[in-house]
Simulated assay, not measured.
Amino acid sequence: MPKCENCGVLWTWAQTVCRLCTLGEGMKCPSCREEQFVTMESRKKTSLFVFAAPLLMFISVAFGINPFASLALFLASFLIILGIYPFVIELTDERGPMW
């Protein structure tokens, strides 16, 4: 789970997911309200999650999987990624380069 660089509070899974669903670069710490940013290294790790959906669609088309089974596979992978994502990100109090 991410930890605030300013106050050291460990964020919960729900707090992390709620803050990830907001628009903008930074996320406010639930404890000290200071702006926190995802580290560059963390962004590189989580960028691999973006390729999950197109890969699943390609596999479904290539192997002729039933559309309902394909949708179920897509939703299951989405939930797994959503469950894992907060454990992978790390925070910093400095705004860094995008890559």
Results as ranks from 00 to 15, higher is better:
Ile65Phe: 06
Ile59Pro: 03
Cys21Phe: 07
Glu5Arg: 06
Val61Lys: 09
Lys45Asp: 06
Cys29Gly: 05
Thr22His: 11
Leu56Phe: 15
Arg33Gly: 02
Gly24Cys: 02
Ala62Val: 09
Arg43Lys: 15
Gly8Trp: 03
Thr39Arg: 12
Ala53Lys: 13
Ile80His: 04
Ile89Val: 10
Ile84Ala: 06
Leu48Lys: 10
Pro86Ile: 04
Gly8Tyr: 01
Leu55Ala: 14
Thr92Leu: 05
Thr92Gln: 04
Pro54Thr: 03
Pro86Arg: 03
Leu79Thr: 08
Ser60Tyr: 11
Trp13Val: 10
Gly64Phe: 00
Phe37Asp: 03
Gly64Ser: 00
Arg19Asp: 01
Pro97Gly: 12
Gly24Leu: 02
Leu82Pro: 00
Gly8His: 02
Ala69Val: 11
Leu48Val: 11
Arg19Leu: 02
Cys32Thr: 02
Glu25Phe: 04
Met40Phe: 05
Glu41Arg: 15
Phe49Asn: 11
Ser42Phe: 10
Ser60Lys: 11
Ala52Glu: 06
Gly64Tyr: 03
Cys21Asn: 08
Pro30Ser: 03
Phe68Gln: 00
Leu55Lys: 02
Gly24Phe: 01
Trp99Lys: 05
Thr46Arg: 07
Leu55Asp: 01
Glu5Tyr: 05
Glu35Tyr: 01
Glu90Gly: 13
Pro54Asp: 04
Phe37His: 09
Cys29Tyr: 00
Ser31Ala: 10
Thr92Met: 05
Asn6Leu: 07
Phe74Tyr: 14
Phe78Thr: 12
Trp13Asp: 08
Cys21His: 06
Ser70His: 04
Ala62Tyr: 13
Met27Leu: 13
Ser70Val: 02
Leu79Ile: 11
Ile80Val: 14
Phe68Thr: 00
Phe37Arg: 04
Phe68His: 00
Met40Trp: 06
Cys29His: 02
Ala62Met: 14
Lys45Val: 09
Leu71Met: 14
Gly26Cys: 01
Gln15Glu: 15
Val88Met: 05
Glu35Phe: 02
Leu79Gln: 11
Phe49Met: 14
Gly83Met: 01
Gln15Asp: 13
Thr16Lys: 06
Ser70Cys: 03
Phe74Met: 13
Phe63Cys: 09
Pro67Lys: 14
Phe78Lys: 10
Ile80Asp: 00
Lys28Ala: 03
Asp93Trp: 04
Met1Asp: 07
Ala14Gly: 00
Leu71Ile: 07
Ala76Asn: 07
Pro86Lys: 01
Ala69Arg: 07
Trp11Ser: 03
Leu55Thr: 12
Val50Gly: 15
Ala14Ile: 09
Met57Ile: 08
Val50Leu: 15
Ala69Tyr: 11
Phe63Glu: 10
Gly96Tyr: 00
Lys44Arg: 13
Val38Ile: 15
Tyr85His: 14
Met98Gly: 05
Lys44His: 11
Glu34Pro: 03
Ala53Pro: 12
Arg95Tyr: 06
Ser31Gln: 08
Lys3Asp: 03
Ala52Thr: 08
Leu79Cys: 14
Pro2Asn: 08
Glu34Trp: 00
Leu48Met: 10
Gln36Phe: 01
Pro30Gln: 02
Leu75Pro: 01
Lys28Met: 01
